[in-house]
Protein backbone atom coordinates (compact mmCIF):
# COMPACT_ATOMS: atom_id res chain seq x y z
CA UNK A 1 0.00 0.00 0.00
CA UNK A 2 1.46 3.34 -0.97
CA UNK A 3 -1.22 5.64 0.31
CA UNK A 4 -4.94 5.33 0.85
CA UNK A 5 -7.27 8.28 1.31
CA UNK A 6 -10.80 7.97 2.59
CA UNK A 7 -13.29 10.76 3.06
CA UNK A 8 -16.47 10.50 5.14
CA UNK A 9 -19.21 13.07 4.70
CA UNK A 10 -22.69 13.70 6.08
CA UNK A 11 -24.69 15.80 8.52
CA UNK A 12 -23.19 16.99 11.78
CA UNK A 13 -24.21 14.39 14.39
CA UNK A 14 -24.03 11.33 12.16
CA UNK A 15 -20.74 10.25 13.70
CA UNK A 16 -18.62 11.20 10.71
CA UNK A 17 -15.68 12.51 12.75
CA UNK A 18 -15.79 9.53 15.11
CA UNK A 19 -15.80 7.00 12.29
CA UNK A 20 -12.83 8.79 10.71
CA UNK A 21 -10.94 8.84 14.00
CA UNK A 22 -11.55 5.10 14.47
CA UNK A 23 -9.94 4.49 11.05
CA UNK A 24 -6.98 6.65 12.10
CA UNK A 25 -6.60 4.85 15.46
CA UNK A 26 -6.71 1.48 13.72
CA UNK A 27 -4.12 2.73 11.21
CA UNK A 28 -1.71 3.54 14.04
CA UNK A 29 -2.29 0.06 15.49
CA UNK A 30 -1.10 -1.35 12.17
CA UNK A 31 1.97 0.91 12.28
CA UNK A 32 0.84 3.10 9.43
CA UNK A 33 1.34 6.82 9.11
CA UNK A 34 -2.00 8.55 9.54
CA UNK A 35 -3.44 12.02 9.17
CA UNK A 36 -7.03 12.91 10.08
CA UNK A 37 -8.31 16.23 8.83
CA UNK A 38 -11.73 17.56 9.81
CA UNK A 39 -13.77 20.06 7.90
CA UNK A 40 -13.83 23.04 10.11
CA UNK A 41 -15.45 26.23 9.12
CA UNK A 42 -18.45 28.41 9.81
CA UNK A 43 -20.80 25.41 10.15
CA UNK A 44 -24.27 25.40 11.62
CA UNK A 45 -26.36 22.76 13.33
CA UNK A 46 -27.59 20.30 10.73
CA UNK A 47 -24.91 21.52 8.32
CA UNK A 48 -22.43 19.34 6.52
CA UNK A 49 -19.48 17.70 8.23
CA UNK A 50 -16.70 15.76 6.63
CA UNK A 51 -13.28 14.44 7.41
CA UNK A 52 -10.46 12.88 5.46
CA UNK A 53 -8.13 10.16 6.68
CA UNK A 54 -4.85 9.47 4.92
CA UNK A 55 -3.19 6.11 5.61
CA UNK A 56 0.30 5.37 4.33
CA UNK A 57 3.30 3.14 4.83
CA UNK A 58 5.60 6.10 4.26
CA UNK A 59 5.68 9.72 5.36
CA UNK A 60 2.51 11.57 4.42
CA UNK A 61 3.09 14.66 2.31
CA UNK A 62 0.01 16.72 1.61
CA UNK A 63 -2.79 16.13 4.11
CA UNK A 64 -5.10 17.77 1.56
CA UNK A 65 -6.43 15.36 -1.02
CA UNK A 66 -8.27 16.43 -4.17
CA UNK A 67 -9.54 13.01 -5.22
CA UNK A 68 -9.68 10.44 -2.40
CA UNK A 69 -9.57 6.75 -3.24
CA UNK A 70 -12.75 6.17 -1.24
CA UNK A 71 -15.60 8.47 -0.27
CA UNK A 72 -18.41 7.41 2.07
CA UNK A 73 -21.47 9.63 1.89
CA UNK A 74 -24.08 9.61 4.63
CA UNK A 75 -26.61 12.07 3.19
CA UNK A 76 -27.85 13.49 -0.10
CA UNK A 77 -25.98 16.85 -0.06
CA UNK A 78 -22.72 14.96 0.44
CA UNK A 79 -23.64 12.54 -2.35
CA UNK A 80 -24.11 15.45 -4.75
CA UNK A 81 -21.04 17.33 -3.61
CA UNK A 82 -18.50 14.53 -3.32
CA UNK A 83 -19.66 11.89 -5.82
CA UNK A 84 -17.73 13.56 -8.65
CA UNK A 85 -14.56 13.67 -6.52
CA UNK A 86 -13.95 9.94 -6.09
CA UNK A 87 -10.70 8.93 -7.76
CA UNK A 88 -11.35 6.91 -10.96
CA UNK A 89 -11.07 3.25 -10.09
CA UNK A 90 -11.97 4.07 -6.49
CA UNK A 91 -14.81 3.27 -4.17
CA UNK A 92 -18.02 5.17 -3.45
CA UNK A 93 -19.98 4.00 -0.41
CA UNK A 94 -23.51 5.35 -0.31
CA UNK A 95 -25.82 5.29 2.71
CA UNK A 96 -28.86 4.11 0.77
CA UNK A 97 -31.15 4.57 3.79
CA UNK A 98 -31.01 8.33 3.29
CA UNK A 99 -29.91 8.59 -0.34
CA UNK A 100 -32.43 7.28 -2.86
CA UNK A 101 -30.34 7.87 -5.98
CA UNK A 102 -27.21 6.26 -7.37
CA UNK A 103 -24.26 7.69 -9.25
CA UNK A 104 -24.12 7.52 -13.05
CA UNK A 105 -20.36 7.16 -12.96
CA UNK A 106 -19.10 3.82 -14.20
CA UNK A 107 -15.41 4.33 -13.48
CA UNK A 108 -15.60 3.36 -9.81
CA UNK A 109 -17.22 0.77 -7.59
CA UNK A 110 -20.41 1.94 -6.00
CA UNK A 111 -21.52 0.17 -2.84
CA UNK A 112 -25.02 0.79 -1.50
CA UNK A 113 -25.34 0.25 2.24
CA UNK A 114 -28.68 0.76 4.02
CA UNK A 115 -26.76 1.87 7.09
CA UNK A 116 -29.57 3.47 9.11
CA UNK A 117 -31.90 0.52 8.55
CA UNK A 118 -29.22 -1.98 9.51
CA UNK A 119 -28.33 -0.01 12.62
CA UNK A 120 -31.99 0.40 13.61
CA UNK A 121 -32.59 -3.30 13.14
CA UNK A 122 -29.66 -4.00 15.45
CA UNK A 123 -31.20 -1.71 18.04
CA UNK A 124 -29.94 1.86 17.53
CA UNK A 125 -30.00 4.00 14.42
CA UNK A 126 -27.08 6.07 15.71
CA UNK A 127 -24.72 3.21 14.89
CA UNK A 128 -25.09 3.86 11.15
CA UNK A 129 -21.57 5.28 11.10
CA UNK A 130 -20.17 1.98 12.35
CA UNK A 131 -22.10 0.08 9.66
CA UNK A 132 -20.40 2.27 7.06
CA UNK A 133 -17.05 1.80 8.80
CA UNK A 134 -17.51 -1.98 8.58
CA UNK A 135 -18.48 -1.70 4.92
CA UNK A 136 -15.41 0.42 4.21
CA UNK A 137 -13.10 -2.12 5.81
CA UNK A 138 -14.83 -4.94 3.92
CA UNK A 139 -14.74 -3.20 0.56
CA UNK A 140 -11.25 -1.74 0.78
CA UNK A 141 -9.30 -4.29 2.80
CA UNK A 142 -7.00 -1.42 3.73
CA UNK A 143 -7.11 -2.34 7.42
CA UNK A 144 -7.63 -5.72 9.04
CA UNK A 145 -11.11 -6.34 10.38
CA UNK A 146 -9.63 -7.59 13.65
CA UNK A 147 -7.64 -4.37 14.15
CA UNK A 148 -10.73 -2.25 13.70
CA UNK A 149 -12.69 -4.51 16.04
CA UNK A 150 -10.00 -4.13 18.72
CA UNK A 151 -10.02 -0.37 18.18
CA UNK A 152 -13.76 -0.26 18.80
CA UNK A 153 -13.37 -2.28 22.00
CA UNK A 154 -10.66 0.12 23.19
CA UNK A 155 -12.32 3.37 22.21
CA UNK A 156 -16.02 2.60 22.62
CA UNK A 157 -15.75 -0.04 25.33
CA UNK A 158 -16.91 2.03 28.28
CA UNK A 159 -20.60 1.37 27.66
CA UNK A 160 -20.95 -2.37 27.31
CA UNK A 161 -24.47 -2.36 25.86
CA UNK A 162 -23.48 -0.01 23.04
CA UNK A 163 -20.21 -1.80 22.40
CA UNK A 164 -21.96 -5.08 21.66
CA UNK A 165 -24.30 -3.31 19.27
CA UNK A 166 -21.40 -1.50 17.59
CA UNK A 167 -19.45 -4.72 17.16
CA UNK A 168 -22.52 -6.41 15.71
CA UNK A 169 -23.15 -3.72 13.09
CA UNK A 170 -19.44 -3.47 12.28
CA UNK A 171 -19.54 -7.14 11.35
CA UNK A 172 -22.79 -6.77 9.40
CA UNK A 173 -21.43 -3.85 7.39
CA UNK A 174 -18.20 -5.73 6.77
CA UNK A 175 -20.01 -8.87 5.61
CA UNK A 176 -22.37 -6.92 3.37
CA UNK A 177 -19.43 -5.30 1.59
CA UNK A 178 -17.55 -8.57 1.21
CA UNK A 179 -20.63 -10.34 -0.16
CA UNK A 180 -21.38 -7.52 -2.60
CA UNK A 181 -17.89 -6.82 -3.85
CA UNK A 182 -16.03 -10.05 -3.26
CA UNK A 183 -12.56 -10.45 -1.80
CA UNK A 184 -10.66 -10.17 -5.08
CA UNK A 185 -12.28 -6.95 -6.24
CA UNK A 186 -11.51 -4.93 -3.13
CA UNK A 187 -10.53 -1.34 -3.83
Amino acid sequence: MEQYEVMLAGFGGQGIMTAGQLIAYAGIKEDKQVAWIPSYGPEMRGGTAYCTVVLSDTRIGSPIVTNPRCICVFNRPSFDKFGPKVKPGGLFIVNSSLINVTSDRTDFIQLLVPANEMALKAGNGKAANIVILGAFIGASGVLKYETVRETLIEKLGKKKEYLDLNLQVLEEGYNLALETIGQKDRV
Partner: peptide, 10 residues
Protein backbone atom coordinates in the same frame (compact mmCIF):
# COMPACT_ATOMS: atom_id res chain seq x y z
CA UNK B 1 -1.60 27.45 10.05
CA UNK B 2 -5.09 26.26 11.04
CA UNK B 3 -4.36 22.88 9.51
CA UNK B 4 -1.57 22.17 12.02
CA UNK B 5 -3.99 22.92 14.86
CA UNK B 6 -6.95 20.96 13.53
CA UNK B 7 -5.28 17.92 12.00
CA UNK B 8 -4.83 14.67 13.94
CA UNK B 9 -1.61 12.70 13.48
CA UNK B 10 0.34 10.13 15.42
Amino acid sequence: DGMIGQMMEA
